[in-house]
Every structure is written in structure tokens, then in C-alpha cells.
Design a protein around this nucleic acid. Structure first.
Lengths: 356, 356
DNA sequence: CTGAAAGCGCTTACAG
DNA sequence: CTGAAAGCGCTTACAG
């Protein structure tokens, strides 16, 4: 019954993992277990139709031999690799690294590998480039944080290629099993309530680029939060910037040079908030005595600058882990138990104070 | 002469990349070019022994058909995947992201993919885990920044597995073709000269953990730089910390509480330098009026805090690109033209000033 | 519930 | 300089 023995016999006795002994293959397991390699394959893939007894015997021998199937061979036969691609364009290193960690936490111990795929959405041919990657490397799945997650053409392409994916975004862009929601609007509303309770009336908002949905969400949430306190967000105090330090500094310079300058500024992210610190200081304003500032993201820097920045925290690492978990479910065709929600939380530090 | 035609015929006319047409394989190219697939394979792998005429014909047809070989199939046949692993344990997100970018710059357009492999050197079984990865996934190569690059057992294992690798480190740990040198000592010497020229005499150094070779290199370089000015680094003013914010703050607290406190501190990295800011402020000291501070790394934060941090810049992204380029040479068996040197550069900002 | 054959798309010896 | 055969280590139909 056992198949023809190959040259690849392994060395049944030894068990020194570091030694360069011949690799154990599915053929060895089949021979040792006295079954066909198809049956071993069924055990490997958790195919239900295998007798419990047979399954146990095969599993025992696999364990004894320290057998693990070859990912390259499976990839070729499956027409799917074991790569999980992270397609990102977020400019904040902290965001990217935290997301990577969350995904890696979840992938640890599996056969899946995390490959990095930076996307320049503005570059011509960005979609074509991603398409080439997907067609050639056939990743097991793709995870997209904002703003790549907002690219509908990209997601349509993935769907056409039958490539599973999960989008992380601040609004419902897709079927629930393909979404990890971040509720940015809720976080921005918390920032608004915090400033309103401190007695601020002239409140400004420096938001991110209109090409980022998160910028819209945060703006809308902030506005809604203020309205709860019968405060209106003045259009003259609402400025678009680029989610980057310098753009935040420039926007703040304009706002703080106004005759009737704001007493508080909510920045669309921490990067811009730090930029606002710089401009305020240049104009001789003290934080928080003359100006209260709230950020968004809770980057490590927020806690380390002086005065420490009040900001809205998004659990980015957990979001990455959840995205990876959802993706695993899609890949395995398992039904989602329930989609986890990631609610932001305001972290009050030293950059905000009540109006005297 | 042409081989038996498979079901995989492609559609010779159409050229719509996005459409889901059948994939072009080596068999199609061989048939169309009227050669064997072995000859196509030779062209693919730049094997020299192919008639120029034949090569041109095959290349022309590959271009016409938009053919690209399947990485999974090549990996199985080659017994080597197209994955480049980044094995890292650096705690600074900025360092990690910059290194990733440099590597990705270099890998762009090739068939190689960057996979992330965080290493916890202190965890038991870290070596075994890496071994499992290398044995199963057979990466084309591994890039190791510090401090993973300092792990000799890990590198020995890679050598045993015939897995090409490149180490990025502040001293010569390996054959030149496997090394990217960073010259940390030179950067630390520049920091020393800068402080000495400003007239400082009581100078402290908060260095990184002894388990990091970079900590030793920076300490030695700093000491040497001071000696050029006949200054000696006082052991009582030399403290070990953990390359992290909090540890820097604690070390500075000790130093600044001394009866005869230092007038300048050189921190082993920017993270710790920022921690020193915090401690100095708590003790009522102004920077740079009462205390000059120099960091190492030039993280983005360095330019953004107030006062902006004088620091030593290492071109991390370029180093990543160079590491990837060296690795490509090792993989292709090409002789190195010449190893690029990465010299650090001191960036003078506002955190240092001459003693009145 | 289990298996023998064919195949995934390439490359490595071995011939000529 | 070129090719037919066998193989890399798995899985997918197709039988039984």
C-alpha cells in the first residue's frame, strides 16, 4: 500500500532540529502511516471526511517526525501564497509600526507571513502596480488601513481577483466581515465635549486633507460634539492641513494671528498638534495658559513633550490584530463571531485647561 | 519541436491586463518561440549559454505576452523563496520604518518581497523560532539591523542553512560583503568635539544597554572625542540606561541631582535625550541655559520639540537600501563593487550652547 | 472513508 | 548551444 519510496528517507532515529538532515515530506508521512499522501493532505487541511482513527495515526506520525508542509509547494498547488500584504500609505511611522505589531501578534505561530506594500495613491499606475503584485504573488489576503482602505477601485480589483481583504476605516465602506471600524467621529466628539466643559467658546479645528475620510469624520464628530453644548464651529476657525507637522504649524500661525484668536484648537492628529505648539511659542503664547490644544492618535510623543498633550487614543495595535483575525476568518471561510468595535478614548494631559 | 499544448492557451489577441484571462506560462512562451521550455528558463535566469538570436526572440515574445514567471513555482524548483526577511528588535519605530523604507526602495521592481520578522532576543527559543522560519520558508535572504545583527549564534545558523544575510552594525562582525558599517563611534566623537568647543568641562554621558554593541561604540567614540581636547569622561558621570524615554529621565535625574552637576549631557539616543528634557524641567533647569543636551539618531521628534535637539544623524534609510543592495549581490553571487560607508553627521540645533 | 493519477509552473541533472 | 525527462512537494478532480 505505501507509495514508492523516494530518495528523501529522512533519518527515523535522529531528532536534532538544527542538523542539516533531509527534509521530511508528505511522502514520508504517508509511507510511515501506511496511507496515501492524499489522506495525509486531508489531515493537513482539516478535511472532515477522514476516519478519526486514521487522522490520529497520521497526526501522531507527523508530530514524531516534526513534519510541517512546505509552504512553497502548497502555494503552487493552491494557487495562493501564504503572504498577507499590508497595503499602507499612512505618513505616521508610529501608526504603521503599531499596526504591523498588531498583525504580527495575530500571525505568530501560523504559516502566514506579513509582507509590506507601501502604496502611493497619487502616483500614476498605483492600481496597476498592486494588480501586478496580486496577480503574480497571489497573496492569501490584504489588509488596508486608511487612507488606502478608502480606495474603492483598489478593493474592486481585489474582489475581481478573488483576493480576500479587510479594510480599516472610520466609516462603513464594505460588508461588515471585511471592515474594522474605528469611530473617529466619536473620538472627535469627546474632544469637543472636553473643551466645551472647560468653558472654551472660541474653538478652532485644524483638520486633515479632504482626501482622507478620517478628516471628514473627525470634523463632523467635532462639530456634533460642540453642538451638544450649543456651540457652533466657526468656518473661519476651521482650516485644512496635511496631517503633517509643518502644515499644522502653518495653519496655527494663521489662526493665532487673528485679532480675535481662538482659546483652544483641536488638531486632526498629534503631528499637527505638535506643529501648533511651535507656532504658539513663536507668537509668545503659553500652553495651556493662553491656548488649549487637543490632538488625535496618542502617539508616544504626545506624552513626552512639554506640556504633555491631551489627545484622543485609537488602539491601533489592537485594530491591526482584529484586522488580521478577520482576514483569517475570510481565508478559512469561517463565519464571524461578532465584529469588535474600537472606541476611541480621550487622554487628558497638560495641554488643556479651563478658561479662567 | 514545440511541446504538447496545454489547456492554458492564453488569448493571443487581447491585452487587457485587468481582465481575468488565463495566465501565460513558460509553456506558452516556449511554444510561441519554437524552443523548449528549458531555453526559456535559461533566458529567464540570464544563463550565458544561449545564442543571442534565440535570446532576443524569446525576450520579444515574453514582452508581447506580458509574461512573468510564477514566483511560487520558481521557489519550489529553486528550493528558495523570494522573501527577504527583516529580522529586527529595535525599539524605535522611526528606526524600523526608515529601515523598511530603504529596503523597499531597493526591492521595488524586483520579484522580492519584504517580510517582517520581529525577534525577541531575550525570549527562550528565539533562535529556534528563526531556524524554523528559515527551514520552512527558505527566504532568499535576511537583513539584520542592530542589535539582532550582533547575535553570532543566529548568523552561524543562517550560514549553516546556506541562507544569505547582511548585518548592519557599528563594528566589523563579519566578512565585508555581509556587513554594512555605521561608524557610531565617529558620530559620538563629533558630539564630544561639539561640546568641548562650546567650553563644557563637566560632561555626562547616558549610554544604552551593555547588551547593545552600539552603546559601547558610542561610549568609546565619545571618550575619544573628549580626549582630543584633553578632557576625561568622569565615570561618576557615565550612566547606563535602556535606550528608552523613561530610563533616560531616571538617569538624568541622578546626574542633575549631584552637588556638582554636569553642564552638558550626551545621550546615547534621542529617546533618552527627550527623557532628559523632562527631568531637567522638573528640577527647574532651562535648556540650553543651564544644561546642554546632545542626542543620537535624529528622529523626527528631535527637530520638533522645543528647544530643538542637537543630535547625531545616521542615514538609516540609505543604510537599509545599501543592506538590500548588498544582499542582492550575495544572492546573485556578484562581487561587490565597493562597500559604501555611512558616516554620521552632527546636526546642531538649539539644545546646546557655549558656557558663558 | 480512501487512493492512483495528473497537474500546479518552474528548474536540475543528464544527454546530445 | 539546445532539449526530453524527471522532479520540487503539495492539491485537485475523478474513481471506487
Amino acid at each position: 500500500m505505501p507509495e514508492k519510496q523516494t530518495k528523501n528517507t529522512g533519518s527515523p532515529g535522529a531528532n536534532d532540529a538544527i542538523a542539516g538532515r533531509a527534509k521530511v515530506t508528505i511522502n514520508d508521512i504517508a509511507r510511515l502511516a501506511n496511507v496515501s499522501k492524499k489522506t495525509v493532505s486531508r489531515v493537513l487541511n482539516d478535511h472532515p471526511i477522514v476516519r478519526a482513527e486514521t487522522r490520529a495515526k497520521v497526526k501522531k506520525i507527523m508530530a514524531e517526525q516534526g513534519y510541517a508542509p512546505d509552504p512553497q509547494a502548497r502555494a503552487l498547488a493552491f494557487r495562493r501564497s501564504f503572504l498577507i500584504a499590508l497595503a499602507y500609505d499612512n505618513p505616521s511611522p508610529q501608526y504603521v509600526v503599531n499596526m504591523q505589531r498588531g498583525i504580527l501578534d495575530q500571525l505568530d505561530g501560523t504559516d502566514f507571513q506579513l509582507v509590506l506594500h507601501p502604496v502611493d495613491r497619487n502616483a500614476p499606475g498605483a492600481l496597476e502596480k498592486m494588480y501586478q503584485f496580486v496577480e503574480r504573488h497571489r497573496p492569501a489576503g490584504v489588509i488596508m488601513p486608511p487612507s488606502v482602505s478608502e480606495d474603492q477601485a483598489l478593493c474592486d480589483m481585489l474582489k475581481t481577483q478573488a483576493c480576500p481583504y479587510v479594510r480599516i476605516a472610520s466609516l462603513d465602506l464594505d460588508a461588515p466581515e471585511r471592515m474594522v471600524r474605528t469611530h473617529d467621529a466619536d473620538g472627535a466628539a469627546q474632544a469637543a465635549r472636553h473643551l466645551a466643559r472647560l468653558g472654551h467658546k472660541r474653538i478652532a479645528h485644524v483638520h486633515g486633507p479632504r482626501s482622507f475620510r478620517s478628516a471628514h469624520e473627525r470634523l463632523a464628530g467635532f462639530r456634533a460634539g460642540l453642538e451638544e453644548f450649543d456651540l457652533e464651529l466657526d468656518d473661519a476657525l476651521t482650516i485644512e492641513a496635511g496631517y503633517a507637522f509643518e502644515s499644522g504649524a502653518r495653519a496655527a500661525h494663521k489662526l493665532l494671528s487673528l485679532a480675535n484668536r481662538p482659546t483652544a484648537i483641536f488638531a486632526g492628529n498629534d503631528e499637527m498638534a505638535i506643529g501648533i505648539y511651535t507656532s504658539a511659542r513663536k507668537l509668545g503664547l503659553s500652553i495651556p495658559e493662553d491656548l488649549s490644544i487637543v490632538g488625535f492618535d496618542d502617539t508616544p510623543m504626545a506624552a513626552r513633550i512639554a506640556p504633555a498633550l491631551t489627545t484622543v487614543r485609537l488602539p491601533i495595535r489592537d485594530m491591526g490584530a482584529e484586522a488580521a483575525e478577520s482576514l483569517m476568518r475570510l481565508i478559512k471561510g469561517v463565519q464571524a463571531a461578532e465584529n469588535k468595535s474600537f472606541l476611541p478614548e480621550i487622554i487628558v494631559r497638560e495641554s488643556t485647561r479651563s478658561l479662567a
